[in-house]
Structures are given as structure tokens and as C-alpha cells.
Simulated scan of single mutants.
Amino acid sequence: MTPTLIATIGPAGAGKTTWRHRHVPPGATVVSLDETRARLAPCGCSANQDVNAAAVEHGFAATAAVLAAGGTVVWDVTSYLRRFRTRLLDLAAEAGARTEAVVLLPPLATVLARNGRRDNTPCPDCGYARRVPEARVREMHHAVTAALPGLHTEGWNTLHFGVLPPDLRHR
């Protein structure tokens, strides 16, 4: 069995987790930083940024272990930063894994509206809320949009474009 890495790429509110729930192959290991943060945070919050660095490292370690064992990993994370995608691709290369990227980039208004429906009540323990600050969502959307033309050069074996804004579909 060939190890496989499937990574979602998209801003907060793009539908990555929804896509994952519908499309994860049987037996795949899901790496979700939201879920990992919730497990690591003393308060149990998926938004707790105080444990984010540990969650990221845990995610990379789990990915490396599953790929080394010949399994499939679904990386349910924004992956909007190239350095994170590069590190994922390096882990996959070390394991001889096949790589697939699933780009989910609805129009900015859509992701802002979806994010706006997330709970914005700060946790009484850590102070973080589930809703991502609007400026960060805009930054993520811009970064993914800017990365689109070069994604094919990053080393992905397959690119899937699940949702793109109408103005980007025919470039």
C-alpha cells in the first residue's frame, strides 16, 4: 500500500472540515489542528492558541508516523502558509508518499459569512473564541489566492480544486 497525504488548503470558513467528513477514505488518519488543540488545551478549546505550536508539532509527528507505516493522512488544516505545505511535502517525500492537495477557496464574502456564524464568545479560561478574526480570514484568503498559480510547482502529485470563486475558475 502506498502511503498517501491528502492536505486541504483554504482559509477558515472554506469548508475543509465539511469536505473531510464527506470524503475521508476508510482507514485514513485525520490530522485536525482544531481537534488537537482541543485535546491539548487545559480548557478544552479548539481555538486555544496557547497550545497551537504544540498542536502543529503533534500534527506533523502523527503525519510522519502514519506515512512511514504506509497509511493515509488527511490534513484538515488551512495550509495557507507555504512553509507548512513545504514541511508536509517533505514528510511525504521521506515516506515515499503520494500527495494530493484539495483546494477549497469560496468567495471571500462566503468565508467571512461562515466564520461570522462561529461562536465569538471568549473562553473564560484561555480567552480565545472559535471565530477567527476577520483580518486573519482575509489574510488566509489572500494567501491561498496568491498561491494558486504556483501550487502545481510545489510538488503535489495531484491538485483538486473543490471550490473556487467565479473569477478564479477560468485562469
Score class of each variant (00 low, 15 high):
residue 79 S to T: 11
residue 67 L to C: 03
residue 51 V to H: 02
residue 30 V to A: 03
residue 61 A to F: 05
residue 82 R to M: 08
residue 24 V to T: 15
residue 62 A to V: 15
residue 46 S to F: 08
residue 72 T to K: 04
residue 83 R to V: 15
residue 12 A to P: 12
residue 18 T to D: 09
residue 51 V to M: 04
residue 94 E to R: 14
residue 4 T to F: 08
residue 76 D to M: 03
residue 62 A to S: 13
residue 53 A to S: 14
residue 38 A to G: 09
residue 99 T to F: 06
residue 10 G to S: 04
residue 55 A to G: 14
residue 57 E to T: 09
residue 85 R to F: 06
residue 20 R to K: 13
residue 31 V to Q: 02
residue 72 T to E: 05
residue 26 P to Q: 10
residue 62 A to H: 10
residue 79 S to F: 08
residue 29 T to V: 14
residue 24 V to C: 12
residue 27 G to L: 06
residue 25 P to E: 14
residue 29 T to H: 14
residue 56 V to W: 13
residue 24 V to G: 10
residue 69 A to D: 15
residue 10 G to N: 00
residue 28 A to T: 03
residue 98 R to G: 12
residue 8 T to H: 08
residue 42 P to H: 04
residue 28 A to Q: 02
residue 30 V to W: 10
residue 37 R to V: 08
residue 74 V to H: 02
residue 59 G to R: 00
residue 2 T to L: 12
residue 47 A to Q: 01
residue 78 T to M: 10
residue 76 D to R: 08
residue 42 P to V: 06
residue 74 V to S: 05
residue 68 A to Y: 03
residue 38 A to D: 10
residue 52 N to A: 13
residue 19 W to M: 02
residue 22 R to I: 11
residue 5 L to S: 02
residue 37 R to D: 08
residue 12 A to S: 15
residue 24 V to M: 12
residue 67 L to Y: 02
residue 95 A to V: 02
residue 5 L to I: 05
residue 97 A to F: 05
residue 49 Q to D: 14
residue 87 R to G: 03
residue 48 N to L: 07
residue 91 L to V: 09
residue 16 K to W: 00
residue 90 D to Q: 15
residue 93 A to C: 06
residue 44 G to R: 00
residue 73 V to I: 04
residue 96 G to C: 01
residue 80 Y to M: 10
residue 5 L to W: 08
residue 41 A to D: 09
residue 36 T to L: 12
residue 1 M to R: 14
residue 88 L to W: 08
residue 6 I to M: 05
residue 96 G to A: 07
residue 11 P to S: 06
residue 21 H to Y: 12
residue 27 G to D: 09
residue 43 C to T: 09
residue 6 I to F: 05
residue 52 N to C: 11
residue 29 T to Q: 08
residue 69 A to C: 08
residue 36 T to F: 04
residue 16 K to C: 01
residue 86 T to V: 15
residue 3 P to T: 04
residue 43 C to R: 07
residue 18 T to L: 12
residue 24 V to D: 11
residue 81 L to S: 13
residue 80 Y to A: 12
residue 74 V to P: 05
residue 60 F to P: 02
residue 30 V to N: 02
residue 14 A to G: 08
residue 96 G to R: 09
residue 10 G to D: 00
residue 18 T to G: 00
residue 74 V to F: 08
residue 8 T to R: 10
residue 42 P to R: 01
residue 95 A to M: 00
residue 19 W to Q: 03
residue 32 S to D: 06
residue 58 H to S: 15
